[in-house]
């Protein structure tokens, strides 16, 4: 990823709207963009997990990105879309308000995320891109799709191991 940034001058982004702000994710991660469809509820999952859908025979989990970022929840509309992304072998659908365009953003227009740029926790952001006075918030998909609980679990078990070693 780091090396890519050095050599590639432009990044291709899928740009979408969420709660009045414009976000971008790298097109390489985007599997496809589909309309809203019936979602089967899965019990005992975090609130932001809406359930699963059937994507041509594959069972794909779908998360609501507004809920994921603790933004204000709204009804789905005709414009709502599910962006199916694949990150490190894990495929997940993300519900967004609407998808606007695919655009090219020169890498030197990207800046590290300032603390107060958006309503989303800076931990989920990769940077901020500026294009024709438009601000595009770039998401760090790895972080977005990371399961907090899992991470905590890992840390805890690691701590246990560490504690055991100290004794």
């Amino acid at each position: 990823m780091q090396e890519e940034k050095k050599t590639v001058i432009e990044e291709q982004l899928v740009v979408f709207q969420l709660s009045g702000e414009t976000y971008g994710i790298e097109i390489a991660n985007v599997h496809e963009i589909i309309r809203m469809q019936d979602i089967t509820d899965i019990p005992r999952t975090p609130d932001f997990v809406e359930g699963v859908i059937n994507l041509r025979g594959r069972i794909i989990p779908v998360i609501d990105l507004r809920k994921r970022f603790d933004l204000e929840v709204s009804e789905y509309t005709q414009a709502s879309r599910i962006i199916v992304v694949e990150v490190e072998g894990v495929t997940v659908g993300m519900i967004v308000d609407s998808v606007s365009e695919v655009l090219r953003l020169p890498t030197n227009n990207i800046e590290p995320p300032p603390a107060m740029v958006s309503s989303v926790d800076a931990a989920y952001l990769r940077g901020v891109g500026k294009l024709d006075e438009q601000l595009i918030i770039l998401l760090n998909l790895n972080k977005v799709l990371e399961k907090d609980e899992k991470e905590q679990l890992k840390d805890e078990s690691l701590q246990e191991v560490a504690a055991a070693l100290e004794e």
Binding site: I42, P43, R44, V52, I59, G89, V90, V92, L145, K147
Partner: peptide, 13 residues
């Protein structure tokens, strides 16, 4: 079919 890596093992499913 498995529920996939993202959801992992859900008790009861």
């Amino acid at each position: 079919k498995p529920l996939g890596d993202y959801l992992g093992q859900i008790p009861g499913l």
